[in-house]
């Protein structure tokens, strides 16, 4: 039995059965149902295999890029992230898991530990990857802006929770914001809901006001 999988093929089968008996039509329907039922399992496995393969290759890519970046000294990495990418020192510290004071010392020439240098390198590599494979014009702002207007979660929050792969998948369009946040934290809707917004007040300055 050949397996027809496209809507068009199914429609053709339906057209050819229009004039046949009811019993024949029902048999065709059952045959198609069995075909699709039989396909469901293999397709799911194939989909999972493809997703896992994509994930492995991306991890490999990120690891290789991180290793290459880690050959740069800390000052060069800081310069790249701050001057070329536009991250604030505070953001760099947060995304590297250290205090602003530690970043200040690195800027003064103090060498970070190998682990911290690798964290810096990984951030720089991740931003490069984001820039290269995903349609994100400004990776720094993409990472620091809210993912959803009515919730405070940002890509930076997810990055810090080890979700770099999910972020890259999302940035490439493999799934939407809802699924991204669901994978991160099933309670994200309640835990990050924002009832406030920033408005320009009558004096021209920014204020925080309850969302209307």
């Amino acid at each position: 039995m050949s397996i027809q999988t496209s809507d068009t093929s199914t429609q053709l089968e339906r057209d050819t059965t229009t004039e046949t008996s009811t019993a024949s039509t029902l048999e065709t329907i059952r045959r198609l149902q069995r075909s699709y039922d039989e396909l469901t399992g293999p397709v799911r496995v194939l989909h999972e295999d493809v997703a896992a393969g994509r994930r492995d290759v991306r991890e490999w890519d990120l690891d290789e890029r991180t290793a290459a970046k880690a050959r740069l000294d800390a000052l060069a990495l800081l310069e790249e992230l701050s001057t070329d990418r536009g991250f604030s020192w505070s953001d760099i510290a947060r995304l590297s898991g250290v205090s602003v004071s530690a970043v200040r010392k690195w800027r003064s020439g103090e060498a970070p530990s190998p682990e911290r240098r690798r964290d810096l390198a990984r951030l720089a590599a991740f931003v490069d990857l984001l820039d290269e494979i995903a349609p994100v014009s400004d990776p720094a702002s993409w990472m620091l802006m809210r993912l959803s207007d009515s919730h405070t979660a940002t890509a930076a929050d997810l990055y810090l929770d080890g979700r770099s792969h999910d972020l890259l998948e999302h940035a490439q369009g493999h799934f939407g914001v809802g699924e991204l946040l669901e994978r991160w934290n099933p309670d994200w809707r309640d835990e990050t809901r924002s009832e406030w917004e920033i408005v320009t007040a009558a004096d021209g300055e920014r204020s925080i006001a309850r969302r209307s």
Partner: peptide, 16 residues
């Protein structure tokens, strides 16, 4: 600087 979408551009401009 007031616009989160453009803040990194402002930072880059000043640092350059």
């Amino acid at each position: 600087l007031s616009d989160p979408a453009k803040r990194p551009q402002a930072i880059t401009t000043v640092r350059r």
